[in-house]
Design a protein around this nucleic acid. Structure first.
Lengths: 293, 293
DNA sequence: CACCGGGCATCACGAATGCTTATGCCCGGC
DNA sequence: GCCGGGCATAAGCATTCGTGATGCCCGGTG
């Protein structure tokens, strides 16, 4: 199971074509065909159906493994490269949208910053592979609990901020006047599914477990990143939204009610490649220091 | 960064000798030397000092990555092999010592079982690499929270049992009469460090975070797996122990006081390779069903 | 101080692997 | 029924990889 073979296989599966994969990888079609054949012979299993080209069940499974493996391989290479490379003067930050609040923005150096907004689950990978020098991720967790992040590579995570969570609902909603709301009170509600702008509802099940977390029914899916829009959608009755309290207020027609049970917070963490910690100087260290203080 | 090269490098680093590694791997010393040289050339960094043979800082870092990579590679191969292999009639269970309580033992089939006790952190790897068909791990977590396990490979974890935690202290201890104790009340205490027999204190920091979890001072380290011995040590004043409540009682001279804050439980989970789930029959499915019911 | 021996590096050669070009085969469209 | 796109297979050639032999460095020893 040579990584080269895996890389080829992943490309073929993604493009659903041997020839296209060959073009993308700079091989001939013949080589790609031989790569896949070698993998199938090695594992003793067919991995792809031909005509149409699609992964078999075993192939699906291999895709999961291969993705993680190749990512980790890239991460390892990037990490080791950092040992050799001269320290740079620029700072490359990858952040999930909700991780960018006043506190984190204020810590950015005045010059030489590239800031990239990414989906939550791609931030750790960006830091691990060296695409970013530092990452900012947000998510929900029990108070002072760390976030649950995939361990692509050894990453150092440090707490940057924690804020209470609020449920955003229309001002006319029966619960709008409350000073706090329990998730159990809302089991039958419809929610807004907003992976980029909102707090990830899916994480609730993972973090909180238990009966309260299961079965969020979603009414509308919003793929943008703007929390005001999300709150406005909630005000309009398209469904409830879960947001950090500071981001939930000030939208006309919407009421933000703090979530009191389960006791969860919106948390932002700084992500650094664990190896990069040792550097005491440089823009990364500077950024990290300002976030910590 | 060919896995073969990594495997060789890891062996050299572990044995601190090129020649020994060559013998172990069935290569010549010359090949091993070339492998390491190829890696160093590829990364542009020295990985090992010669005479004595020891990893450089960069080499240390590579060891971490290589270990995880090779483990994941083995896991992938084992997982795919399960697709091809005929279902077997025997059941191979890997379990951490505290995961073996009456409830889990009762679920074992009457015949054809191999039960292996392993350190907590090696159970997921055993399941992922196919060394075991199923795993039982224990640890501490917030109620109904899943355990935090390393994700070597996609493993399916299901709750098997949860019990309250108890602090074991000498019957003469001032807190011995209490009906419940807070961890904060014990910040200055000395603890027994018993990674195999007790609940892992180190996890407290990870699970609970916050100030209460940091800085456990340990008085004595016990490397055995017997909880009675651990409780007896606690009774003798060698330090406090943290155990599941059912395992903590009935030792003369020792008092078991339930831990009431932070709200944590001792949890046991069943670990299966995610791919093996689909089988509806066979000893693995049977075991899983009996544990779930 | 010179000798000796263990252990890693280097060199040269033969075998095996991997990629390319060329060709064959299968299936779907016209 | 013919044509064409796309994957499989065959043969040839370049590269890579592992071996055996040799060289070099260092530490121990009389």
């Amino acid at each position: 199971m040579d990584p080269h073979l895996l890389r080829t296989y992943v490309a073929v599966a993604r493009l659903a074509s041997f020839s296209d994969a060959a073009r993308e990888l700079g091989y001939t079609q013949s080589a790609v065909s031989q790569h896949v054949a070698a993998l199938e012979a090695d594992l003793g299993l067919p991995l792809l159906t031909r005509r149409p080209v699609a992964p078999t069940p075993a192939g699906e499974r291999l895709l999961e493994h291969a993705g993680a493996l190749l990512l980790r391989l890239d991460a390892a290479r990037a990490d080791l490269d950092r040992f050799a490379a001269a320290p740079r003067a620029t700072l490359n930050v990858a952040a999930s949208p909700l991780a960018l609040h006043p506190r984190t923005l204020a810590a950015l150096p005045a010059t030489g910053v590239t800031l990239r907004a990414l989906p939550r689950d791609r931030v750790p990978a960006a830091v691990a592979t060296g695409d970013a020098d530092a990452g900012l991720v947000d998510g929900i967790a029990a108070p002072s609990d760390p976030l649950r992040l995939p361990d692509i590579a050894p990453l150092a995570a440090t707490r940057v901020a924690e804020e209470p969570l609020a449920v955003v609902l229309p001002a006319t909603h029966p619960l709008a006047g409350r000073t706090g709301v329990r998730l159990d009170d809302l089991v039958d509600a419809r929610w807004l599914d907003a992976p980029a702008a909102g707090v990830p509802l899916g994480e609730l099940r993972a973090v909180h477990g238990g009966p309260a977390g299961r079965g969020f029914r979603t009414a509308l899916r919003y793929e943008g990143t703007d929390t005001r829009t999300l709150a406005a959608l909630a005000a309009d009755g398209h469904g409830l939204a879960l947001l950090p309290l500071p981001a939930a207020g000030g939208v006309p027609g919407a009421a933000a009610v703090p979530l009191v049970a389960p006791r969860l917070v919106h948390r932002t963490e700084l992500l650094l490649a664990a190896g990069a910690r040792r550097e005491a100087a440089g823009p990364v260290a500077e950024f990290s220091r300002r976030l910590r203080s």
